[in-house]
C-alpha cells in the first residue's frame, strides 16, 4: 500500500468548517517522457481521488498527468455530525489505496 498522509482535526464543533489535507506517494509518470535511448516511458498516473463522509461525497478530484508527483489536495468539509471520512485513490495499473479518519463532534 502506498504511503498516505492525511491531516485533519479529530474533533470539531457542529457546523464548523474543517480543513482536510491529503497526500499520497505516487510517481505520476506522465507518459510524455522518454528514456535516454528514446523509448517512451508508459503512463502511470492516479486518475481519481474521492473523499466521502459516511457515504456522502465531500470532494472529488479527476486527475490528469498535469498533477505533480505525490498528489496533494487540500479542501474543506462541513462538520454536520460525527462521522468517518474515507479517502480513496485509484489509478493506472490497478492502483488503489484507501484511508479513513474519524471526526467527532464535541
Amino acid at each position: 500500500m502506498a504511503r498516505t498522509l492525511i491531516n485533519m482535526p479529530k474533533r470539531a464543533r457542529r457546523g464548523e468548517v474543517v480543513e482536510i489535507k491529503a497526500m499520497i506517494a505516487h510517481v505520476m509518470e506522465t507518459g510524455y517522457r522518454r528514456t535516454e535511448t528514446g523509448a517512451a516511458i508508459p503512463r502511470d498516473i492516479l486518475r481519481l481521488f474521492v473523499c466521502t463522509c459516511d457515504g456522502e461525497e465531500v470532494f472529488r478530484a479527476e486527475i490528469h498527468p498535469g498533477i505533480a508527483a505525490n498528489p496533494y489536495f487540500a479542501f474543506t468539509a462541513l462538520a454536520a455530525g460525527s462521522g468517518t471520512f474515507v479517502f480513496s485513490w485509484t489509478g493506472d495499473n490497478g492502483f488503489a489505496a484507501t484511508e479513513s479518519v474519524r471526526l467527532e463532534i464535541e
Binding site: 478530484a61 479527476e62 498527468p65 498535469g66 498533477i67 489536495f73 487540500a74 474543506t76
Partner: peptide
C-alpha cells in the same frame, strides 16, 4: 483547471459535494 500550454490542457477537475465547506481547494500542478 486548464493550463493552455501543457501537453494536455486539462490538469484537474475538482468536484464539490453538498458537504464541502467552502468552494476552495489547493493542489500542486505541473
Amino acid at each position: 483547471v486548464i493550463a493552455e500550454k501543457n501537453p494536455q490542457p486539462v490538469v484537474a477537475v475538482l468536484r464539490f459535494g453538498p458537504r464541502a465547506g467552502r468552494a476552495a481547494a489547493s493542489t500542486r500542478i505541473r
